[in-house]
Design a binder for these strands. Structure first.
Lengths: 331, 331
DNA sequence: GTGAAAGCGCTAACAC
DNA sequence: GTGTTAGCGCTTTCAC
């Protein structure tokens, strides 16, 4: 049913080796043979079976990326960057969503183990540092966006602590002294570091951290609203809120608006990630942007390098962030 | 370097056939042998090479899905549904984004031709009906979300015409008679059908279609704002706007708000797709929802059926839609 | 119940 | 410049 290299060879009256050679733009094949083979390939609508080829070459030229979520996230931009970087180097990118479920992630990681792909980039993972490190010994993996403490594999993120610091300083510079934080209890280090940055910014400006001004729960949307409600019900209301994600910020904005508070005037809210929605939202959301596309290109170039080289680059790279001020902080 | 079935066989003192048999939970293998092999597999941390297996079995148990976009879309929900349906049937789903670029889509379709995947689900494609039909002869493909006129392959969408009709009728029932339309010039049939539904709804209620009330351009965000600006600058302003996508609706809402118009009160706006942002937006956006998850599950079950059966089901299935009224229509 | 061996489609020595 | 052939890792028929 499916046409193979043998069929092409027979039809063209040459050996499979010759067909393979023209297929791979290889070495010396006479012009006439090349032409003939190409013509036959077209006629027979032949497409080389990549299973055979990959099996033989022991490589697939494919990188897998596992994202924990696919809605309202910055991941798609990173994947877009990865695709650009990968294509430029002759690689393909296939992406999958784990929904932060360990059993799904394991199933997907299996594509790495069974040699369906040459490498995996994890944009957030349920795996522990120990597991990651063990995998790193045998496979090419990289972390992007979300680091793991103790993981000794190629990692690319922004400097979350510094980025949060810069964001909070921006709020302080606008005259805010009462700045609340919406964070998470997640083990994800990005949120841990963002909280650290928040605390350092306050400390550096001699502002005491108030327990009332810190709300921590999950990344779930509603927590932004709950936090905003709590903050704005306080006797001593904050004048600004820093949320460790844009989604939490949006939810907080929505709740504050519902309570009759004019966000951007009575209350400044600043998020993190610069997801696509930020610009569109009413009011548009101030935030910290990560260079997603660049991160994607960078991590894929690095991992492809690791795939082809014996010595692995397991460094931790930090990419530059940017604080973007929009309507939600009155800009 | 990589451990193979041979290594396992040797270590366990059995033949590769036996290892293969326990691997596949196959036929008759003695309990003792099974145990021994499993133990060895664990010890050697063996993972079967899927290239070898797939080559031999001539199947990959993998479905590819190509989405035109990955940001702010309903596609991720469909892919999520596909994954659920696929996993239940022992298949994996890999997804890729074409960014509506034909050369990227072609590159991605190549994974179908070179047998990296067993089938492809296209959520919007740049291919023509002729091309689709030709492909359909040799490969398992399905269209989901976006139909193509004249395409004779498995297709799953909502009834766009009827859905738009229902949406516009909902606006009419709320007392609106001056209803504008934001649509696109795209060849995508969903938007063509949605416009048809709009026209039929007006006609059925003896409302004349006004040329001034129709704005058509691309799906690009800014067109929602441009349309809203034009509409609301008219002498005879519409009281409602139906947009063929939520993104256009959101952009229109943003512009109207900027013009001092209270959306939901002075002006009703209704979108299409029920993307995740709708609920979060201020005001929350009324829309037409597609049963994304169900569509994903359904299409993947159908295409897997096509893969395993000789006779292909190339029918066009229409899934039920739902009009969801929220704040942007004053609900 | 188990093993030997052919072969999936391809590439890359090796020989000429 | 071209062909022959081994073999990538696996499954499966066919013997036994």
């Amino acid at each position: 049913m499916s046409v193979t290299i043998k069929d092409v060879a027979k039809a063209a009256g040459v050996s499979v080796a010759t067909v393979s050679r023209v297929l791979n733009g290889n070495s010396n094949v006479s012009e006439s043979a090349t032409e003939l083979v190409n013509k036959t390939i077209k006629e027979l609508r032949y497409s080389p079976n990549s299973l055979g080829r990959n099996l033989r070459k022991r490589e697939t030229k494919t990188i897998m990326v596992i994202q924990p979520a696919s809605v309202h996230s910055l991941y798609s931009e990173i994947v877009a960057g990865m695709q650009v970087g990968a294509h430029a180097l002759g690689y393909d990118v296939i992406s999958m969503t784990s929904y932060s479920a360990i059993e799904i992630e394991n199933r997907q990681m299996n594509m790495l183990f069974n040699r369906t792909v040459d490498g995996a980039v994890l944009l957030g993972t349920q795996l522990t540092a120990t597991e990651i490190n063990k995998l790193g010994e045998n496979y090419n993996i990289a972390l992007c966006c979300e680091s793991i403490e103790g993981a000794n594999v190629l990692t690319v993120t922004v400097d979350d602590e510094q980025a949060a610091y810069d964001a909070v300083v921006a709020l302080i510079k606008k005259g805010n002294k009462k700045i609340a934080l919406i964070s998470t209890n997640s083990k994800a280090f990005s949120s841990v570091y963002r909280e650290k940055g928040y605390r350092r910014a306050l400390a550096d400006h001699n502002i005491e951290v108030s327990k009332d001004y810190i709300y921590k729960n999950t990344y779930d949307l509603e927590n932004g609203a709950i936090a905003a409600e709590e903050f704005m019900s306080l006797e001593d209301k904050p004048t600004a809120i820093f949320a460790v994600s844009d989604l939490l910020a949006a939810s907080a904005i929505k709740q504050a608006t519902k309570m009759g508070i004019e966000v951007g005037k009575d209350l400044a809210i600043l998020g993190f990630d610069n997801i696509a929605m930020c610009e569109m939202f009413i009011p548009s959301i101030s935030t910290v942007s990560q260079p997603c596309k660049e991160m994607g290109i960078f991590v894929v170039e690095k991992i492809i390098n690791n795939i082809s080289n014996v010595e692995k680059d397991n460094k931790y790279y930090k990419m530059p962030h940017e604080v973007i001020l929009r309507e939600s902080t009155g800009d």
